[in-house]
Design a protein around this nucleic acid. Structure first.
Lengths: 170, 170
DNA sequence: TTGGAAAGTCAACAAGGCTGACGTAAACTC
DNA sequence: GAGTTTACGTCAGCCTTGTTGACTTTCCAA
C-alpha cells in the first residue's frame, strides 16, 4: 500500500515486512520524524527562554487540569527535582497555578492560567499544523495504522497513561 | 480499523480523523512511543559511559560506511563541535575508524571497526526487538500506514536523506 | 502520636546541545 | 602562484535538562 510489498495479507504468514532491513528503516523513520515533530514548537520556545521540558509540562497540565505533581511526574518520566525546576519558572512567570489540595493538603493541583492557555494553544497549533498535513496526505487508513503501531510500541505503563488521557478527553 | 471510526473512506471528504482532539492524541502517542523506542538501547548504553548521541553516530556510520564527517553532520543535525566530542571518544575507544580521503585528502571517511560493529549489532538488536513486536502485533497494513505517516511528517531535507539511505541499503 | 507520603529545595554533577574563535591542510580559482 | 574556500579538528564557555543525595515541612492515616 505504501511500498507495494508485504502488505497484501492480514495473516501471520506474510512476514516480509519484518526483515532486519525493514526494521532498520523504521528506526530511522522514527528518528527523522521525531525531529520534525518537535521542530515547530522548539522554534517558538527559543524566543522566550523556554525549552522542550516546559512545553511538555504545559501540554500535560492542559490535558489533565488539576493534576498533582506526582501524577505529572509519572506522565513525564523525570525526577521531581527536574520537573520542579521547570514548574518553578512557569509558576513565577504566571503561566501555571498551583493550588493546595482540598481533601489532601499535601498535594498541589496544577492548572494553566489564561496566559498559560494562550501559550499552550500557540505551541500545539504549530505542532498540529504539521501533524494535520501529514495525516491529510497519508490518508485515514495510514493514520489508523500509524496510531496502532505507536500504541503497541509504548511501554505498558505508558500505554496505560496514554489510554487514560485519551478516555478522559476524547 | 484501529478504532472503528473515520477510516471507511479513502477520499478527502471524510476528515473526522483530523479533529484537534485526534491530533492531540497523536501528539501524545508520538511522545510516549518515542520514549519506548529509545528505552532499550539507552539501558545498554548507561553501562558503558556512552549516551544516545554515541548510538546515533554508530547507527549512521554503520548505515553509510565511508561517510564523510560533513555528511554525517547533515544526517544527525548537530554542530561539528557536538559531533566531534562523540566521535573522538568512539575513535579513541577503537569503535570507529577515520580514514583520510583518497581523492580529497581534506575529507575523513568513517567506518565501524569490528568492535564497533559488535556494539552496533547489540544496540540495534535491542531496538529491533520492540519494533518487531509492535509490527507483528499491529499487522502489515498498520505498519505500512505507520511508515507512510512518518515519512510525510519529516522535514523535506530529512525525508530526502531518509530515502537516500533507504535506496542505498535495501 | 508516630510513620510515611507529597512536595519543595539545595547542591553537585553529567550529557549533549549551542556559539565563537582559531588553526591546518588541501582544493579550488583567478 | 597567490589568495580564497572547504573540511576538519579543537579550545573555551555557555545553556538546558536530566541525574543522585540529603534535608525540611506539611499533613494524612493507622
Amino acid at each position: 500500500m505504501a511500498d507495494g510489498r508485504g502488505t497484501s495479507s492480514h495473516s501471520g504468514e506474510n512476514l516480509l515486512f519484518l526483515t532486519d532491513e525493514q526494521l532498520r528503516q523504521a528506526i530511522e523513520a522514527m528518528f527523522f520524524a521525531y525531529r520534525g515533530f518537535t521542530a515547530d514548537p522548539d522554534r517558538i520556545l527559543v524566543d522566550m527562554a523556554y525549552g522542550r521540558a516546559h512545553h511538555r509540562a504545559i501540554h500535560f497540565i492542559n490535558r489533565a487540569p488539576g493534576t498533582t505533581v506526582n501524577n505529572l511526574l509519572g506522565l513525564l518520566g523525570v525526577t521531581k527535582q527536574s520537573l520542579n525546576r521547570v514548574l518553578r519558572t512557569l509558576i513565577a512567570d504566571g503561566l501555571v497555578e498551583s493550588q493546595v489540595g482540598k481533601s489532601d493538603k499535601r498535594e498541589r493541583h496544577l492548572y494553566l492560567t489564561e496566559a498559560g492557555r494562550v501559550l499552550e494553544q500557540t505551541l500545539s497549533d504549530a505542532q498540529r499544523v504539521r501533524m494535520r498535513g501529514a495525516f491529510r496526505d497519508a490518508g485515514p487508513e495510514a493514520v489508523a495504522g500509524f496510531r496502532t503501531v505507536l500504541e503497541t510500541m509504548m511501554d505498558p505503563e505508558m500505554r496505560h497513561s496514554y489510554l487514560r488521557l485519551k478516555e478522559n478527553s476524547g
